[in-house]
Amino acid sequence: MKLIPDKPFTYGHEDGDFYIQQVRRTKPFGRTNHDHPTYEIYYLAAGERVHFLDRRTVRLTAGDLVLVNKHVVHNASDLGPPEHERIVVNFSDAFLGAGHPLHDPLLFAPFARQAAVLRLGAQERAFAEQLFAKMVAEAAHERPGREVYLRLLLAELLLLAARHPADEPKDVVAAQSPLQRKIAEVVAHVNASYETKLTLAGLAGRFFVSPYYLSRSFRAVTGFTLIEYVNLTRIREARRLLRETDFKIIAVAERTGFESAGHFDRVFKKLTGTTPHLYRKLNRL
């Protein structure tokens, strides 16, 4: 079975109810500003990649299946030769989440780890590839029952992942070079201190490196610029505060490290596609 066609296939939108894309790439490619309100399933069919997942760096090889929860910051970059083949599926709660007739908490167990990496065996890999091929074939034709069948196939894939051993293979975690350890320290500091003033110069001084070295190295390891990652971390916490508290929007901006409400509003809209006020209105718990 030829899983990845010569031409890429895309159905839907990443932030929509259901999205699937399969593609083969031969040139360097990285994803940036990746943080969305949908669940993501990533399958690497061929090649090798490095992913920044939930504040850690992991190495993926062909046959690895990655499940990423909603609003988890993640990214992908090359590991050695850029050639790789992969399939990505995104879906919303509305498509198969709580309240849907096909929903079962077991199917969402892998997402409890925020970002789970599963190394599939030969039989699991063949079964997963059959499911992906059926999804693509179904998405490619508009016919009665298309969404029903896509939900059934997705449920089968999630069940496969939920039944997979919970322990992540040790060789998935990328070898920690001195550079990666240094950037991991910077990431940990940003996540612990996002409400404070964070600048490239200040962080470079704190970790005893030059601003140029930190800027270049941070992007090489994570796939994000330093300011992109700081803003993603701040906006992630801002969304939580908007959903779960009664803090005024100006207070949310202050608590997440933004120097002004205007700057907060601009960054929030850029990263989420909506304003803080509308986000709270639509997502209040």
Rank of each mutant, 00 (worst) to 15 (best):
D167Y: 05
R236Y: 09
R24D: 15
A62Q: 07
D167T: 15
L120W: 12
P276G: 04
T225C: 01
E14F: 12
I4G: 09
P81C: 05
L150R: 07
F91G: 02
H263S: 11
I4S: 06
L120E: 04
V252R: 03
L271N: 12
P276N: 00
L226M: 08
I41F: 11
G12Q: 04
E147T: 09
R206E: 07
Y11K: 02
F258L: 02
Q123R: 11
V186P: 03
S260L: 03
A109E: 14
A45Q: 11
A188Q: 04
A161F: 00
D93Q: 04
D54A: 08
A184R: 12
D246F: 13
L157E: 05
R49L: 14
K7I: 14
K269N: 12
F29C: 09
M1L: 14
F132K: 06
E168H: 02
R86E: 15
A161T: 05
A188H: 03
F108H: 07
N33T: 07
F258N: 03
R243G: 04
S210L: 12
P276S: 04
G262N: 13
E124C: 07
E259W: 02
Y213W: 14
H141E: 15
L118P: 02
R86M: 13
L67H: 05
I41D: 04
V66L: 00
R119N: 09
A126I: 00
H277Y: 15
